[in-house]
């Protein structure tokens, strides 16, 4: 499956792209197709992506977050072991109280990745089975060290 095929299929499936004020956009500039969707559509979209056999995105190989100082962006990299066409999914989140549905029930690898994003960026994954600190020691809850304005005079040396 090529990038264009994937785009056509995506537009067929999700009417959000074609409505008057699109709540979702598709970006073709990168190597891979990038899709921006809203938080409300998220769970519906990813479930479709996984279960719909014409996409069958069964392999979530990267899950991370970017701090843009004004907002956070969740980035999901999917690929399919049958079609082999990766897709990048981006969701914009509120910076102060980021919240998003978990995908750990769809891709089990997300459980660890989401725990990492939770402790590093403070994103609250709703309905996550076990949302605790994974890498950071106890007492680092809500410190969100990967945010750009994080200050730690002891451990960080400013270049």
């Amino acid at each position: 499956m090529t990038k264009e095929d994937l785009k056509i299929k995506l537009i067929e499936l999700f009417p959000q792209f074609t409505t008057e004020i699109p709540s979702a956009t598709i970006d073709e500039s990168g190597t891979w197709l990038k899709m921006n969707i809203s938080k409300e559509d998220f769970l519906n979209v990813v479930t479709q992506l996984k279960t719909n056999l014409s996409f069958h995105f069964d392999f979530l190989f990267c899950l991370t977050c970017i701090d843009w100082k004004t907002h956070l962006t969740m980035v999901y990299h999917f690929t399919s072991t049958t079609h082999r066409q990766p897709l990048v999914l981006q969701i914009t989140l509120d910076r102060e109280h980021p919240e998003i549905e978990t995908v750990s029930s769809i891709w089990r690898t997300a459980e660890f990745h989401e725990r990492e994003v939770y402790e590093m960026f403070g994103v609250n994954f709703l309905h996550h089975p076990d949302l605790r600190l994974l890498i950071l020691p106890d007492g680092w809850e809500n410190k969100r060290p990967m945010l750009k304005d994080f200050e730690d005079p002891i451990n960080m040396i400013k270049l």
Binding site: D58, F61, W107
Partner: peptide, 9 residues
């Protein structure tokens, strides 16, 4: 299936 779901490579 599980290996794919767990993101094993």
């Amino acid at each position: 299936e599980d290996a794919i779901s767990y993101g094993c490579t």
